[in-house]
């Protein structure tokens, strides 16, 4: 189908974008890479009277180190983050997850901030943000505020952003020493949305026990699901295949998957059991081998 008519703005600064959004919210939508929003507009599932295109705002495109975190501007293209040496050195879980985020042609245009703000429950980046304890920086007419990833995602395509707020940055803590990571996903075709995906990080204590485990899943509920009981079961444990298998079974009980065209809820739980076990084993291997 073809899009319905809208009024288009292409501000060149963040200040202009914030004020345009404030003037026209809630009938205005910010347009980032458009790889999720434009399909909805083409289908006329999303109709906004005003589109505020953020693609000309160069100040929102950057990747830099800031106080132990990596700060990524919301309009940074996914392929730029994927190829960033800084990202692969400090938060390699993100690099690994980005390879599952659509296809290269999608990642050329798709943005890091757009994938987070769109909050598709099957998308990879929200799960990564939750697993790594990222913070999301929002800017609106009242100023700037920081929202923990665990509080940012509210449900399918729904976030804590107010209609007049823009996501401007995500801050992701660097992986600590003795940490290993893995992102695993099952989909029908590489680059498709996850049937289930798992982001895992294991940090080892000096004696080799698990100091801390982080687990978040996509395709597993109305928003990215943190498997906190599985995490708690791993904390302080001696890592073993048996522990990882148990964690997979616990995580499968914590998620809340739907049945749809692609997979039943039952199947998704079974897949989650296996992927969590494999992701933990891979994260542990990387933690012990020093990446």
């Amino acid at each position: 189908m073809k899009p319905a008519a809208f009024t288009y703005f292409a501000p060149s600064s963040l200040d202009q974008a914030v004020s345009l959004l404030a003037d026209h919210a809630p009938e205005a939508k910010p347009l980032a890479g458009g790889q999720s929003l434009i399909p909805l507009i083409n289908f006329r599932l999303a109709e906004s009277r005003y589109l505020i295109d953020l693609n000309r705002i160069s100040e929102l495109s950057y990747i830099r180190e800031a106080d132990g975190t990596i700060a990524i501007g919301a309009m940074t293209r996914q392929f730029e983050a994927e190829r960033s040496e800084l990202v692969s050195r400090t938060i390699p879980l993100l690099t690994e997850a980005l390879r599952f985020t659509g296809h290269p042609t999608i990642r050329h245009r798709g943005t890091v901030g757009g994938a987070l703000a769109h909050a598709d429950p099957a998308a990879e980046l929200p799960a990564v943000a939750v697993a790594l304890g990222a913070e999301l920086v929002a800017r609106g007419p009242a100023g700037t505020r920081t929202i923990p990833a665990g509080e940012f995602f509210l449900g399918p395509l729904s976030t804590a952003l107010a209609p007049d707020e823009l996501l401007v940055e995500v801050r992701i803590p660097q992986l600590p020493p003795r940490a290993g990571w893995a992102f695993l996903e099952l989909s029908r075709r590489h680059g498709d949305f996850a049937i289930v995906g798992v982001a895992a990080v294991i940090t080892l204590a000096p004696d080799g026990r698990v100091e801390r485990a982080s687990l978040a899943l996509c395709g597993a509920g109305p928003k990215p699901v943190r498997a906190s009981r599985a995490e708690a079961a791993l904390a302080g444990a001696s890592p073993s295949q048996e522990r990882f298998r148990e964690a997979g079974e616990i995580a499968a009980q914590e998620i809340d998957p739907d049945s749809d065209l692609h997979a039943s809820a039952y199947y998704r739980r079974r897949v989650a059991t296996v992927l969590v076990r494999r992701a933990l084993a891979e994260a542990h291997r990387r933690a012990t081998e020093g990446r």
Partner: peptide
């Protein structure tokens, strides 16, 4: 017309994009 099939792929400023997902 919703970014799945790739038939409309063109090169925009040196990188492939789906021309149905760009105004």
């Amino acid at each position: 017309e919703h970014g799945v099939c790739g038939a409309c792929t063109v090169i925009l400023n040196g990188r492939t994009v789906r021309s149905c997902l760009v105004f």
